[in-house]
Design a protein around this nucleic acid. Sequence first.
DNA 1: TAACTTTTGAGAGTTAATCTCATTTAACAT
DNA 2: ATGTTAAATGAGATTAACTCTCAAAAGTTA
Lengths: 212, 212
Amino acid sequence: MLDNQSMSSTSRLDREFERLPLRERKKLKTRRAIQDHALRLFAEQGYDATTVEQIADAAEISPSTFFRYFPTKEDCVLSDEYDPVMAEVFRAQPPEMGVIDALRVMYRELLAGMYIGDRDRILTRSRLVLSVPALRARTFDLMRQESATAFSELAAERAGVPIDDPRVRVLTWATTAAIEAAVTTWAESDGALDLPKLVDEALAFIAAGCPL
Amino acid sequence: MLDNQSMSSTSRLDREFERLPLRERKKLKTRRAIQDHALRLFAEQGYDATTVEQIADAAEISPSTFFRYFPTKEDCVLSDEYDPVMAEVFRAQPPEMGVIDALRVMYRELLAGMYIGDRDRILTRSRLVLSVPALRARTFDLMRQESATAFSELAAERAGVPIDDPRVRVLTWATTAAIEAAVTTWAESDGALDLPKLVDEALAFIAAGCPL
DNA sequence: TAACTTTTGAGAGTTAATCTCATTTAACAT
DNA sequence: ATGTTAAATGAGATTAACTCTCAAAAGTTA
């Protein structure tokens, strides 16, 4: 199931893809073409040195079409990575398990799969995002906003506290920051370190009260 | 209307100010004028609806001069709030005290003072920053980069671990996120809640391992 | 006052981002 | 199949952020 999710995500997604009407299929294809060419050009020339016009030319669309797919140049890098599967796995943990422990189990299960199939892609993208201040700021903001909504609800539900309990935001923002720290350390090591281990240790460290 | 350093700046800063050569004094005055007019216009018209040209007109300078003082429109809101006094107070705590506890004491001491003098200014600015996505992302990124440098060194020093220990980044980013969460909750309450208390409780919650 | 340095303003140029409108292309009911 | 309807696209104009250059103005110092 887990390996299935990531490894075979291509084929599963492809099957869904082929069931879509032609118009939707073309839209998805265009969207992917833009992202692929953009990431390639960013890698080749740098982010700032690449104009939207160049991306549009490479993807064989007009600049106005680019902005119809992505509201800003930044957004074509920021894929919305939130996965409903994460919520599922999180909820599947025994109710007496604490929020952070459930989070650890969830990442242990899901990251293992992702780490096999998408390691290189994630590493490349992470390096790009971390090296361009505007992308870095927007990516982290996006993750925080997401955790403020989706994960906050899950956490409050599990803990049995109201969603507006100040501790819920502290918990979600702090754990999100811990995971981002792990990813950053991993990207800085050029992938030499083990990401799943770094994430698990980061969360364990938070659960232990950050004893330093 | 906008008398610049009227109430807030302490007499200590004023004395320093008057010792500066005329050229430096004018520069500081211009910088403050830009920030004051910008914040006023943002409050009146909204951030996006206010152009740099309008700010420049209000501050009686040319647009090119605006960009000589602030590299981007965003930056005239983002004051660099890092205070060397914070490092001093942090270092002054007994060496056997843990990093988070030293941080708590530091915030307890410094926030108490700020809360009296600058409460309204901080609240206004926080609301502006939190309401404009671009400002929010850049502010949080700025704080994280700061904590990645200044505070990381202090934390590693106190804990007696190398600065590149992964736990150092996890600790600094997580505590920074916890403080930001407290400030956000405070701003959302329109200042009805007690900021020093929220910050102290957030850090205590982190030190306890986020038990939820 | 004169020589020197720094700050400033004017103006032109680049690019991201928004908007309108005409054209093309797919979807679907007959 | 075909015509009607709805959606996607491209071209082009527009705004505003940001960069750059150069000459004028203001300050510092001898």
